[in-house]
Design a protein around this nucleic acid. Structure first.
Lengths: 151, 151
DNA sequence: AGTCAATAGTTGCATATACAACTATATCTG
DNA sequence: CAGATATAGTTGTATATGCAACTATTGACT
């Protein structure tokens, strides 16, 4: 057991936190300024668009966007109210529902994507070479995997 | 202007978001389980401990921890109530206050640090070689700098 | 089948945080 | 130096989110 991070790693950690906060802040602001859905809504909808049949069980969605069950319930309420997804009962398990992307939800994604992509590009991606992006991905994936294994 | 991030960079971005969320979640949980101050309080106090004279103007603190002014007012209220810092009026500018670390605040930092350090080490630092940590720091610092320049 | 434990989702409550409006003080400009 | 403008901090209000308690359903063990 290595108990303490050295200066180099500690520094990386602190920058990680701060850079994250400013990036999310900046990009979320750009989205709302452009009259698009907020970043959190985007994250939810993009999981749906990538899911088979454009649908996911609510608990799967909660896991993917790292939100508590109750938090997800209320977020889904709002998205459903806004018409961007709908709940559909699951015939095989009557406890649960699917969240299903609607056409309006897909349209909201399409509208937000250029703004979001421009933000990712200009505030984040421009600062990483291809090699660095690959390193980021590899390291972060490993961090995630080790967290998931710990459950 | 590069309008869109490629797959590689987009992937790095998404992992960045997800890894951050799980890491903060995990470490904050470990701190509260060990009966320590939460991560956000830690961040505030550590800025004070590193500041000259263990004191910072409230607006400086707000900037450092990336919190709105109102958010900071209330956070400082709580920390002051808990006895971990105190407000001191500034004789040179009667609009403003310093937040000053107290002995109890310093003790709270010392108590939390081993838990926090162990979390950073085991969930984050172990996954980065020295070279990778250096790359992370360099890239993230550049991202931050470019954001600060944009103000 | 019958009971007990586990799971899916929702709701009540407490806390966190942002924005806008406000007060007090400082600074700038003519 | 007077008035306009900017800044530091606080407060009202709205939204977001977690935890614990709850209902409904499923699954597992006997």
């Amino acid at each position: 057991m290595n108990p303490k991070p050295d200066e180099l790693h500690l520094n990386a950690w602190r920058l990680f936190i701060t850079a994250h906060a400013t990036l999310i802040d900046t990009i979320d602001r750009e989205l709302t300024t452009a009259d698009c859905i907020p970043l959190h809504w985007y994250d939810v909808l993009v999981e749906l668009v990538e899911a088979p049949d454009h649908r996911l069980r609510l608990y799967e969605l909660a896991d993917k966007v790292i939100l508590s069950r109750s938090g997800l319930t209320r977020l889904v309420d709002k998205l459903e109210n806004a018409g961007l997804l709908k709940r559909e009962p699951n015939p095989e398990d009557r406890r649960g529902y699917y969240a299903v992307l609607t056409e309006a939800g897909y349209a909201a994604l399409r509208k937000a994507w250029p703004i979001y992509a421009a933000g990712i590009q200009s505030h984040f991606a421009v600062h990483l070479s291809d090699d660095e992006a690959a390193i980021f991905s590899r390291v972060l994936r490993q961090i995630l995997k080790s967290r998931q294994a710990a459950e």
